[in-house]
Simulated assay, not measured.
Amino acid sequence: MESLTEQRPVNNPVVYGFLRLAGVSAARHKALAGALAEYCRSHELQLSGVFTDRDAAAGATSAAFTGLLDVLALPDVYGVIAPALSHLGPKAIAAERGRRIEKAGSRLLLVRKPEASSHAVSRSRPGRRRHPGTARVLDAES
């Protein structure tokens, strides 16, 4: 009989981070990269690098995103982690980048779920805060 997975050496799934930080301070960059690293530690993911897009006008094919796609072609890469969907860019660019990540055979993990809308919160009860450690997995099928 084989031992349990917890009793065998198993590598954590490899992920790469992606941040979109146009005009953001070095301290904010460090904090967001640290949040990605902590999330990966707590969810048994191996954060192998973080790509940072600092050019807001670059469109869907920035140098940082192209580099990300290059590493997604490496064997045994599980996916991409970002703090929120907005880090992939504005809606149209984020949708295109999401499709390209999926086409590369990778998963997109988001630390924060997308907000439904500001009108969804009832005015008769206080708004609830989302837990910052919740991930949303897009394309969860294997």
Rank of each mutant, 00 (worst) to 15 (best):
G127N: 09
R125G: 01
A35K: 08
A116D: 05
V15N: 00
R136L: 15
S142E: 13
G133W: 11
H131N: 14
T5R: 14
E102M: 10
L32S: 02
G79A: 07
A120E: 13
K30A: 15
G127L: 09
E141A: 14
Y39K: 11
V10C: 08
H29G: 05
A58R: 08
T5W: 10
R100F: 04
L68N: 09
S42E: 14
A26G: 00
I81P: 00
L32R: 06
H29A: 05
A92Q: 11
P114A: 02
G34L: 10
G127P: 09
G89I: 01
S62I: 02
Y39W: 13
S124Q: 11
L85R: 13
V77P: 06
A94Y: 05
N11P: 02
A27P: 02
S124T: 13
L109T: 05
A135E: 08
L21F: 06
A135R: 11
E44G: 11
T52F: 07
P83H: 02
S42W: 10
R128H: 12
G34A: 04
K30F: 09
S117I: 00
V50K: 03
H43P: 00
E102A: 15
F18H: 10
G67Y: 02
L88K: 06
S42V: 12
A56V: 09
P9C: 03
E141F: 13
K30H: 12
P83R: 02
R54K: 12
L110C: 01
E102R: 14
S122T: 06
G133T: 03
G59M: 03
S122Q: 01
